[in-house]
Design a protein around this nucleic acid. Structure first.
Lengths: 196, 196
DNA sequence: ATTAAAAACGAATAAGCGTTAGTTTTGTAA
DNA sequence: TTACAAAACTAACGCTTATTCGTTTTTAAT
């Protein structure tokens, strides 16, 4: 077969990872074979191993890329001095943008992380918990400042995360809903509710 | 090995299905082998085939059991004559209860349905869309009655569904949060928002 | 044109998969 | 006790899996 075609500024490893993300999202990690991935890329399965270490490594690359992006964003946000509710709004909007830009990778990180091997599995879950705890802390500050209702901060945080992590639905309705409306609706709903 | 032990009023097929749901949730459908399932139940893999047709059938049983439960609930709710917002509250509370009672099955139906074979895959997705559309219609009524904010009903519906489908987190925090508080918090958050 | 490294290939390996077949054990009712 | 059906067993089939090996082709620099 032919060579792996990679666009400039993108290593062949990245090209393989992105294709892997697409397949892992569509079929799941375990149900995706290296042979299928190779076909998609246009090369024999064995040739992939000149560029990557293992199938498992591809999942690691995907999951930690996403985890780092989210951790970095919330870290930057901690430095900024704006109201808690504005921070929450920014977090929600960031999730929406990420889901649109890196749909495959975000989806895989959200749904296929359980197939990571140790020690990567523990590592990933630690990253996740770190992010969740930062969000919970933010909400607690909001409650103490009386800008947020006195409800269980853990539940509030997880509900927001569940809502934005479920943004996959959007991919299937791209045509019907425009992104500005999507953002406005979700921010309004999650922050101020749906009842008039 | 020994025989399959099934509690009274539960067929052996049900026993196998429930064990399958537990494994499919923990490891994913594709990564779960019939041999593993057999070990969990205490028989040889081949013995399972005296009770079930195939591995795929187990996934079908799980997914359609869950789909039917949710469709039935929302159908019953359509008959009842109460306010739209009360109906939404009931739907949210039903999701929470279902996730607690049949965690494994609900999780599998939410996450592993893509491994269904045709025609079951199409069938399942139709059921899902039916449910989503019923929820969207409900919200549209609320908007026209002016009890719900004039926002994109599709987005509102999917956000609610994402939030309740993400209730898996609760399983890991059973000890910290009691169910009454969980319900109250989520209903309040999704219907009236979190900002004071 | 020569050389060395990078990247492709085909073939093979060992392990695991869902499932079937044939046989034996177990439980139940006559 | 006999007879029959249900459900277990062992063994095997054919296929797929991720990965490795040794070799050949391609690419790029001298």
């Amino acid at each position: 077969m032919s060579k792996i075609i990679s666009v400039p500024n993108e290593s062949k490893k990245e090209t393989i990872s992105k294709n892997a993300a697409k397949l892992f999202r569509k079929k799941g990690f375990s149900a995706t074979s290296m042979r299928e991935l190779a076909v998609d890329i246009g090369v024999e399965a064995s040739s992939l191993y000149n560029h990557i270490g293992s199938k498992s490594e591809l999942l690691q690359i995907i999951c930690f890329k996403v985890a780092n992006d989210f951790i970095n964003q919330i870290n930057e946000l901690e430095q900024v001095e704006i109201e808690v509710t504005s921070k929450l709004e920014k977090i929600i909007r960031f999730h929406i943008h990420k889901m649109l830009e890196d749909y495959d990778m975000v989806y895989v990180a959200n749904h296929e992380w359980k197939h990571l091997q140790e020690p990567f599995l523990k590592n990933f879950l630690n990253q996740r918990k770190l992010y969740e705890n930062k969000l919970i802390e933010l909400i607690k500050i909001g409650i103490s400042e009386k800008s947020i209702k006195k409800l269980n901060p853990q539940v509030l945080a997880f509900t927001i995360l569940s809502a934005v992590r479920g943004l996959e639905f959007w991919q299937q309705h791209k045509k019907n809903i425009d992104i500005a409306e999507l953002e406005k609706t979700m921010v309004t709903q999650l922050l101020t509710g749906i009842i008039k």
